[in-house]
Structure formats: C-alpha cells, structure tokens
Nucleic acid binder design. Structure first.
Length: 599
RNA sequence: GCCCCCGUAGCUCAAUGGAUAGAGCAGUAGCCUUCUAAGCUAUUGGUUGUGGGUUCGAAUCCCGCCGGGGGCGCCA
C-alpha cells in the first residue's frame, strides 16, 4: 500500500550497497516485521553476505561469518537512511534492517484507502483475463450429500476470489443427467411411482430415495435387469414417452439442486449437461481415429489414445486413455474432451479451471495432454484444481450404497436448528425474522468456514460435533467481531453524532495503542492476501486473515473504548472501526459467508 | 511394480526458505453496573515421523526409509 515510500527506501539502500562495492541485488525482498506492537517492513542481508563470501575467496581464513557480516551491512545501511520520509525508527538487528512506519501517518493512509474503497476494498483492478471455473458435477436423479459440499464451497469461493482479484469469471456446472443411474430411476418411477410429484421443499431427498429404491429392487431381483436394459434401448431410440419423463424428472432434480445452491450462496452462469456433449464427443473420437491420434481396437477392444507412445516417452507417464467403449458407448473422456473444446468456443477463455477431487488427478492430466496433442494451444491453460475428499471418522468413505451418507439438506437443517437454539439463548430480544436470518448466516457460515480453513490437499473428516461447533476459530467468531463493529457505529449514530469519517488532521495529538497498530496492519494486508489466494487457489489464506482480523479487532475492542474516548481519539477510532467493518465484511464476502449486523 | 498426496502440541489445524514454530479445541484457575460474555485473561503442552543432503539459514527444497491415504486400458 505504500509502494512510494518503500521505493524510496529501496533506492537509498541500493545506492549505499553500490557505494560500498557490494554486489547489487535484483530487488529487495520486503517482509512485515513479525513482532506485534510496532508496524513496519524489514529486509535481510544474509543473501548478500553469502554472495560476497562466494565471490571473494577467503585467503586469510579469518573472514567474518555470514550472519555477522549481514549485520554489519544492515548497520551501514541503517546509518545512511536518515530522514527517510514516512518512516520513524530504523534499526539493524541480527542481520535484518527494520524500518518502522510513522504509525499515525500510515494508519490514516490505510484507513482512508479502505473508506474510499468501501465494499470493494481489497479487490484488484481488472486483469482483462477471462477464466472459467467448472465446479459442482452432481448426478441428477440422485441424492446430494456432504461429499459434494467441499466441491461447491471451494468452487464458489475460488470464483469469488478470482473475481475480486480482477479476473472475469464464468461459473459453470456439469450435471450428470444421463447414464445408467438415470435409467434405473426412470424404470422405478414408471413402474412404482407413476404420476407422483416430489414434495416442493424436499425434492432432492425424494429423488435420492427413489434412486435408492430402484437400486434395492434391482439388486434383490436380478431378473428385472432386462427391463432396465429394455428401457435403456428405448432411451437410445429417443422414445418420446421416455424423453418426456426424463426432461421432467431432470428438472425436478435441478430445482432441488437450485434450492441448496441458493442456501449455500452458489450460482452458475452456464450449465453444461452431459447429455449435451455426448454425441459431439463421439464425433470427436471418430476424428481422432482419422488423424491417427486414437487407435480403434473395436470390436475386440476400446478406442484408446496411447499417450506415452505419441509423446515418444520411454518411461510410462501418461499411459493409455480410453476414449470410447468397445461397444461404441461413451465414457467420461469422450465427453470431457469435447466439453473442453466447447468451453473455449463459447467463451474464448484465458484459463479453464476444473474443481474436481484429487482422485481424478491422473485422468485430468491425460485429458489435458490429449488436448495438447490435438493441437489446442490453450490446453496448457487448463488447470485441475484438486482437493482431498471428505471422509467420515475412521477413514470411512462416504457412499450412498453403504448407507453412510449424510444428506446435505439434513446437515443444513441441523446446523440451522442448532444455531437457532444459540440465538434464542444469547439474544432473545431479536424478532423472529431476525433470529432466522442470524441462525442461517451462522450455520451456513460455519459450514463454509470449516471447509475453507483447510488446505486443499488435506482430507476433511466430517463429524457432526465439529461441523456444528460454533466456538473458537470459526465463522461465528469473525461474524461476531463484525457485529460488534456495527454495534459501535450504530450507537454513534443513535447519539445523533455525525459519523465523522473524513480525514482526521491532527496526527501529533496522540499515540496509537499497540492493538490499533496491529489492527491497521492486518487491514492493510487484505488486497495482497486476495491476490495470493487467487494465484494459489487457496481460500485458506483468507480464512486465516479473516480470523486474525477478528481477533485483532476483539483485542482492540477490549483495550480501546471508542464512545468514551477523547474527541480526537474518538474520531480516529470511529474511522478505524468503520474500516475494520469493511475489511471483515469484504473478506467474509469473498469466502461466501454472510456478515450479519447483529447476532 | 510405477505415480501422487499427507505426517507439526493429547485432538483438529496454521506458518513467502528468514528472527522466539502459532491458533483453536480439550484441561485447570479467574473475569459480566462497561461499545453484545458467540467474548476476555492466566496456565499447561514441541527432537515439526525418521536418517542424510543443499543453504548464511529448512517444518518448508532434494534423496532414502517408516507410517497413513489415493491413483494406474473399456467406473465416474
């Protein structure tokens, strides 16, 4: 945020190094000083000292050790950095050069920047790049369970983060609306549930129940398999009766999904149906055979792409990708290859992100490599954002077959119920509508935060107790800090006070409390952390920052009264509270967590 | 057999190659005439799985080993 001042310091340091005949650095690496209570940036000279030692051989055998030499350089640099605008104290310690900002000057600068940016503080300028994020690939006609949750939460958060960072984001979803599971469902419906419609507020459970029932009937009585095969054949002929029911029941599923998407803050700009890309995928495979990329082993074998052979690799790496079954029916690969092409045709993408669990990592590499071999230059801009799966305690994999599923709607309902209990207890004077709003924000926020506050590569173990734990390092703590900030501002307004948020112009009148400096420091990091989270696809950086912000604000809240402060201090703190509220609200917003004004 | 991921406090997890490895939970002892106690304070807790290497400096990068999980020609 203070590039100008930093630049000035950098120029002076490099001038000093040149004057001393020391090797020049490509650029100076600045880090925040990792101690509380003061605020500044630091750089170290170990690298420089080590480089110097390498360049000039030590003949006497009594050269200064690197750490000590780094300290000498730091001290020398510190001496030349007198009267540096914007900085107060300067110190050289243990090889590090620490430049401390003049707290009030910078605090004002940070706060003003936040208040000007308002609800868009933290977001970056447009990068003029268009990126598609595909996430949520549920099967229609089946249940939605907590295993799907991480994908949706991660995908939607990544979209928000990329958007805030300055990318144009296209959110896409890829429902599995065809296949054996759909036929089974249709068979069960036609034979045992004809004419029924799903309960409007519990569609997905009903759809899932009917699927489970179909599965049960068929496994209990293998003779019925032929009926299902028969129905599949009718579907293949596009029998109008079957197609009509398929369209209608698919819509039920989609309506049910939409209900959950809305609650979870998930939305899409484009829906790609599996049914939409299947035929084109098969045509594409023909094309691949014609071009000699794919080998047609039918009828004895499937159509395959020998990736290692095509790439001339000695050691196995990409192996063999099967792109069409020996009976000519399609596979995931058939469709995924065409889908990738379609996405680029539709939107001329600069990047294409796939949010899919890590078990598909190898498969995704095969797909991208095949696209590269096909000659698509954008293949290198495809990226598989892999995340680890959600397990149940004892490393039990969630499976609808084993009956280990926790339905998403049950989880959301239970979380909301639990949150409502706590709201009733903590804040009974709220209206019923307010309680509803708060418990929803808390429950969904807690679920989202827990999922996002874990590195993508780490498995999540789902258990009810920790999923519904609203204490400690969790969304409600951050939300509560936001509520307190809102509360202070509300009281100021209620006192008839004009919220004096314009520049406070007497920076000499008082000094800042350490909690204020800490808070300002964290607020100033939001734009950088958003860029980092976008670059690394890690919402974790923002859950960390949001929590630290909340904690810093709570410390400030306990240490620094606002309403009862002296007028000048009170004005400063009011501005600081207003800035904190934006920083908290904005970081929660990109995480897809609602920031309530009361709770 | 080959490839990928993980291993940090009793538990769940953090930590751009950088200064004293940090939080939460659980435990113990306290704090509501105060801007909301969904909070705060104090306190306990570590050979960062293990052995080498690179580096001025390694939880972080490289190699080996141990333990756990996942993937590898017609599942999705």
């Amino acid at each position: 945020m203070f590039e100008r001042e930093q630049q000035a310091a950098e120029t002076r340091i490099r001038a000093y190094l040149a004057g001393e005949g020391l090797p020049d650095l490509d650029g100076i690496q600045w880090n925040p000083i990792p101690f509380n209570g003061e605020w500044g940036i630091s750089t170290s000279f170990f690298q420089l000292a080590a480089q110097e030692a390498r360049q000039t051989p030590d003949l006497s055998g009594k050269r200064t050790p690197v750490p000590q030499r780094a300290q000498e350089i730091a001290e020398g640099a510190a001496k030349t950095l007198t009267a540096l605008p914007g900085f107060g104290r300067i110190e050289a310690i243990r090889g590090y050069l620490n430049l401390y900002f003049s707290p009030l000057v910078y605090a004002h600068q940070v706060i003003s920047t936040v208040l000007e940016g308002g609800s868009s503080y933290g977001c970056g300028a447009s990068k003029h790049q268009r990126v598609m994020v595909e996430y949520s690939q549920p099967n229609t006609h089946k249940a939605f369970h907590v295993g799907h949750l991480r994908n949706m939460i991660l995908g939607s958060a990544i979209c928000n983060i990329l958007e805030c960072a300055g990318y144009e984001v296209i959110r896409s979803t890829y429902p599995g609306d065809i296949g054996l599971h759909v036929i089974k469902w249709l068979w069960n419906y036609m034979n045992f549930h004809a004419g029924e419609t799903p309960p409007p507020d519990d569609i997905t459970r009903w759809m899932g129940d009917l699927y489970a029932e179909a599965d049960r009937r068929l496994s209990q009585n293998p003779d019925l398999e032929s009926e299902v095969r028969n129905l599949f054949a009718r579907w293949d002929r596009r029998d109008p009766e079957v197609v009509e029911l398929w369209v209608k029941s698919r819509q039920w599923s989609l309506d049910g999904f939409e209900q959950m998407y809305r609650q979870l803050g998930v939305r899409f700009d484009r829906v790609y149906f599996e049914s939409e890309v299947e035929d084109h995928g098969k045509t594409l495979v023909d094309d691949l055979i014609g071009r000699g990329i794919a080998v047609d082993e039918r009828p004895e074998g499937p159509v395959i792409v020998r990736l290692d052979d095509l790439l001339g690799l000695e050691k196995e790496k990409y192996r063999v990708l099967v792109v069409l079954r020996s009976d000519g029916t399609s596979l995931y690969a058939t469709k995924d290859l065409y889908l990738a092409i379609l996405k680029n045709q539709d939107y001329a993408l600069d990047r294409s992100i796939y949010v899919i669990d890590v078990r598909q990592a190898f498969y995704m590499q095969q797909i991208f490599k095949t696209l590269e071999i096909m000659g698509y230059p954008w293949a290198k801009d495809c990226y598989h954002l892999a995340y680890e799966i959600v397990n149940l305690p004892g490393n039990v994999v969630i499976s609808s077959r084993d009956g280990t599923v926790v339905l998403l709607e049950d989880l959301i309902r239970e979380a909301t119920r639990r949150a409502m209990q706590i709201v009733e207890e903590k804040n009974p004077e709220l209206t019923n509508a307010q309680k509803e709003e708060v418990s929803h924000a808390v429950a969904l926020g807690a679920l989202r935060y827990t999922m996002l506050a874990r590195d993508n590569t780490k498995t999540v173990t789902f258990d009810w107790e920790s999923a519904l734990d609203f204490n400690g390092q969790a969304a409600p703590y951050v939300q509560y800090a936001h509520v307190r900030a809102c509360s202070i501002l509300r009281r100021l307004e209620a006192e008839g006070e004009q919220l004096e948020l314009s520049e406070n112009l007497s920076p000499e009148g008082f000094s800042l409390h350490p909690t204020e400096i800490q808070l300002v420091d964290l607020i100033s990091r939001l734009p950088g952390e958003i860029q980092r989270a976008a670059a690394e696809f890690k919402p974790l950086h923002l859950t960390n920052l949001a929590y630290e912000l909340a904690r810093a604000f709570t410390d400030f809240y306990n240490a620094c009264p606002v309403l009862k402060a002296e007028p000048e201090v009170r004005t400063f703190r009011t501005r600081l509270v207003a800035a904190t509220r934006y920083a908290l609200a904005n970081s929660l917003k990109v995480l897809g967590i609602h920031a309530p004004e009361y709770m």
